[in-house]
Amino acid sequence: MDERRPRWIYGAGHEPDPRFSLANERTFLAWVRTALAILAGAVALYSLGVPDPRWVRVTVVVALVLAGGLITLLAFVRWARVERAIRTATPLPAFTLGLGATVTVVLVAVLLAVALALGPG
């Protein structure tokens, strides 16, 4: 009896070629590393006091922390949806996580650029 969890994924379809499941896991872990890098960037910005004024720094840091947490959650959801699609031989889900991460990073970059350009100095 298969005791792997979550059962709604592992109980569906048939056992795929392990290479596909392992590739899916590596992609999930890459997204987790991306989220950790975003969180580290938030900590660095807050610790270094960049940018100034403080409200911009806090806004950027909060946005990055929320983005890091959300990316981690969505990476798990994507892993599960892809694994289920692999197991049931159905089309892979759309790649919305990448678009969301890209938009978030671009918005934060624009906010940082404006704050640094208008900041003291």
Rank of each mutant, 00 (worst) to 15 (best):
D2K: 06
D2Q: 12
E3N: 08
R7G: 13
G11F: 11
A12T: 04
E15Y: 10
P16F: 14
P16L: 15
P16V: 09
P18K: 11
R19C: 06
F20I: 05
L22V: 08
R26N: 07
T27H: 12
F28D: 05
F28W: 11
A30I: 11
A30Q: 12
V32C: 04
V32L: 14
R33N: 11
L36G: 08
A37E: 03
I38N: 02
I38K: 04
A40H: 06
A40D: 04
G41Q: 09
Y46Q: 01
Y46P: 01
G49Y: 06
V50F: 01
P53S: 03
V56Y: 00
R57A: 10
A63M: 00
L64C: 08
V65F: 13
L66R: 07
G68F: 04
G69E: 00
T72N: 11
L73D: 10
F76R: 15
F76W: 15
V77Y: 08
V77F: 09
V77P: 02
R81C: 06
R84I: 08
I86P: 05
R87C: 09
R87P: 04
T88L: 06
T90Y: 10
T90H: 12
P91H: 11
F95A: 15
F95Y: 05
T96Q: 10
G98L: 08
G98T: 07
G98R: 02
L99R: 14
V103K: 01
T104F: 02
V105D: 04
V106H: 08
L107W: 04
V108M: 08
L111F: 06
L111I: 06
A113Q: 01
G119I: 01
G119P: 01
